[in-house]
Design a protein around this nucleic acid. Sequence first.
RNA 1: GGAGAGAUGGCAGAGUGGUCGAUUGCGGCGGUCUUGAAAACCGCUGUACCGCAAGGUACCGGGGGUUCGAAUCCCUCUCUCUCCGCCA
Length: 423
Amino acid sequence: MLTLQALRHDRDAIQSALAKRGLDAAPLLDRILDLDLQRRTTQKEVDDLKAQQNAASREIGDLFKSGQKAEAEARRAEVGELKERIHELDEQQKALIQQQEAALLELPNRPHDSVPSGQSDADNEVVDEEGTKPELGADAKPHWELADQYRLIDFEAGVKISGAGFPVYRGKGAKLQRALIQFFLDRADAAGYEEFIPPHLVNSDSGRGTGQLPDKEGQMYHCADDDLYLIPTAEVPLTNLFRGDLLKADDLPIQLCGYTPCFRREAGSYGKDVRGLNRLHQFDKVEIVRFEKPENSYAALDGMVEHVKGLLRDLELPFRTLRLCGGDLGFTSCLTYDLEVWSAAQGRWLEVSSVSNFETYQSNRLHCRFKNGEGKPELVHTLNGSALALPRIVAALLENHQTADGIHIPAALQRYTGFDRIA
RNA sequence: GGAGAGAUGGCAGAGUGGUCGAUUGCGGCGGUCUUGAAAACCGCUGUACCGCAAGGUACCGGGGGUUCGAAUCCCUCUCUCUCCGCCA
């Protein structure tokens, strides 16, 4: 969430930045600042009363020690009244803080200056486009047909054992998954990201830390008996590794990566979006995460985008980069680049990566800080990106690289698959 | 699942009702010494909120209670550790 300090100092700028999301934040901002004023007023009052009580307690202690019992008893009665009033004000202040927290949670992150305003994904800005879209014949097949033809993925078996959105990979289809994961991890490692294998179930504190809770409660699978959530992305456990920590300036930047399965309920999805591998309840992803000093975070963001582009180039997939508009920008993000690959047989772009800078929005909830040059604790900037999510990559690989005599495996991937063609 | 022990500042670890926001060590910062460094010695070194400031308030796992006064006593929750049981 945004910091109160930012809201106090930059209210108007924040309001106009949030307008790019199509959000009229004025009422909420007014409410938060009003609650803030009330809280400060109450605190001043209660602090003064507590100061009186503390002073009285010290005196009473001294009186008892010097044997002035009567005097001490008299003072005790006085303090009784103070206590009542203090308790009352404490409760008031607690309520104010609670309301303020709730209001702050409703407020999304402030979009970066470069974020275009817009309503939906139609208004996203295409930053660049790279690679050549293949010319496929009229008999080109979508990936779900190819997956069936070459016996790579059994969607029906998945339906039987779990339900829709839980594909079963088999044979070369399974090997391709494993090859991609290994390829992505090796590339992340080469780029300086330390590999982690985190838990796949997390507690609610972790969900709150990265902003999935309370905002996207319904999107995560929840194990009610143990109050644990299946991770929707490795971002959650990886970022929460440093929840509550005070880092040294020398520790930064921190670069992590990890492969995990990801679980998403995807309530409300339908139609062509869910066909084949386009949208799943369980899928595999390699995630990269960075903790940065504020002055470095946007350079780091560019570096992450470049890293992802390198992967797509080596997979010989045509792709484009989008700068998300305010309306499409995630709740917790300041600036997000989406990378999309061209799905030749479906004739559409598929999102395969989302790279974001959250600035201090997550670290404020996480209480993750570092000691800056002056030795003062300061919130770190957090960033993350998919590098990469597998299903749509597989879809694009199958569709784009289909030939009359099978599916060609990109050269960079062959040492991982152990085969150069699926036939 | 059963029994017991514990949770204190960046880390380690004292503190069992009253100047305790907290002894000490390590780490960090500054200084003396040195050509430089190490060692030694000296000093400083938690966070948040309110306040122009002086200063005030809160925080010893979370929540509640007793008391004029709680790190310290009571209740409760969470977590960690040890032992036993079960088990990949």
